[in-house]
Computed example of a mutant assay.
Amino acid sequence: MRTLLKVTLEVEASNKALLDGTLPKIMQSTKEKLNPEASYFLALDGCRTAIFVFDLKDPSEIPGISEPFFMSLNAKVEFSPVMNAEDLQKGLQSLGVPK
């Protein structure tokens, strides 16, 4: 299932992780693990934030994805199912909504 992963990093923990090299290692290993179709890094609500769009094959993957962020970066982690334009169009057509 196409999934949006939003990771909001606590500032003090991510400052420390940036300085000791943990932050770039976690981001790189996450990108390698998820093979995302898109990834973005931004400041949101005053915090470092990473957004990944990837295929979540099974919910059992969630702990392996989340725990490095929780344990090393004191992060907030959110998973949300998402659609692209084609998925939305297909869903609307199933409701009988014209193109």
Rank of each mutant, 00 (worst) to 15 (best):
S29I: 01
E10K: 09
A17V: 03
A13Q: 10
M83S: 11
S66Q: 07
P63Y: 07
R48A: 14
F54G: 08
M83A: 13
F52H: 13
A85D: 13
A43M: 10
S80E: 14
E67D: 09
I62Q: 11
V82F: 10
M27N: 04
E10W: 00
E67N: 13
L73C: 10
T3I: 09
I26E: 01
A38W: 12
L19P: 02
Q93E: 14
V82Q: 07
P81H: 15
N15G: 00
V77I: 12
I62P: 03
G96T: 10
S14M: 10
F79H: 11
Q89L: 10
I65W: 01
M83V: 04
F52Y: 15
A50I: 01
P24M: 06
K57S: 06
T49D: 06
L5A: 12
L34K: 09
P68N: 05
N35S: 07
A13K: 15
Q93P: 01
K16P: 00
G21A: 11
V7Y: 02
K25R: 15
F54P: 03
D55F: 06
F69M: 07
L95F: 09
D45P: 06
L9N: 06
E10A: 13
K76E: 02
K33W: 00
L19F: 04
E61S: 07
Q89V: 10
F70L: 13
I51W: 04
P36L: 03
S39R: 07
A38L: 15
E86Y: 08
L92Y: 05
E61H: 12
D20V: 03
M71A: 07
Q93A: 15
I26L: 08
E67T: 07
S72L: 12
T49L: 09
P36K: 09
I26G: 14
M83D: 05
Q28I: 02
M27D: 04
L34T: 06
K90Y: 03
L92K: 07
F52P: 02
